[in-house]
Design a protein around this nucleic acid. Structure first.
Lengths: 121, 121
DNA sequence: AGGTAATTTGGTCATATTACCAAATAGTAT
DNA sequence: ATACTATTTGGTAATATGACCAAATTACCT
């Protein structure tokens, strides 16, 4: 049995941070959309069917993680993929799913009802 | 501007599930350890410094996601990487981090104190 | 059967994530 | 300045995740 090298925790944390930034269906949808080139928030907002604020936060998160870059032009903000190798990885993910075990159901958060809200502020 | 294909939500959910299974420092540590071949839980448990039950749950999660396979031999359970392309992806992640923005700090959960617990059960 | 070691399962609790809305900010134009 | 549009930021609430402990399970022994 070979010796295990013991990778420093900080490095693993940073890597996990990048991967987490990718680990959400809407964010994947955005990344895939950016395959062909930059898009403004207004386009991505239609693609992902969620509140603009939600989309904006997904974008900010991915930018912080180093996945995306941003370009402001007048009223618009255009985002683009910073590192294209991300796209190749999705093929590997599909390989995992290929002859995969029966149930891999991730279940993502979905807002239940738009119930009443306090109007503090 | 080209037409966007609109990928079905189910597919994105499944992909995100696989990626999420990878998006944790301890799980990355495990995956990296399995690069050289299978390991029993008892080995991985020492590698990741966490309660065995925690490690076991990480392993179960990754197995459910299709990342790992398991082989039982007597008292031991050996886990191994099911799809090796995962490892190449980590290079891409490092590329993202390479000349990345200043702060990418993911902050993972750390139990505060082992305070008293009820002994119900 | 009873004993011991490896692993999994169930419970609980703290923290992280993510959704929406509402309001703030920024840019353009009238 | 006012009006209008695009995007971000702040707040709140629901859900998901991940840590540990304790107990259950499984397999191999005497």
């Amino acid at each position: 049995m070979t010796k295990l090298p013991a990778i420093p925790a900080g490095q693993l944390n940073r890597r996990a941070g990048v991967i987490k930034a990718l680990a959400h269906p809407s964010r994947l949808r955005i990344v895939l959309a950016l395959e062909r080139g930059e898009r403004c928030v207004c386009e991505l907002r239609q693609l992902v069917k969620a509140d603009v604020s939600t989309v904006s936060k997904h974008l900010a998160l991915m930018k912080r993680a180093g996945l995306l870059d941003e370009r402001k032009a007048g009223l618009y903000v255009y985002y683009r993929l910073r590192v294209p190798c991300i796209l190749r990885f999705l093929d590997c993910v599909d390989a995992v799913l290929e002859h995969a075990p029966p149930a891999t159901r991730p279940r993502h958060y979905v807002k239940k009802s738009p119930i009443k809200r306090r109007t503090t502020r």
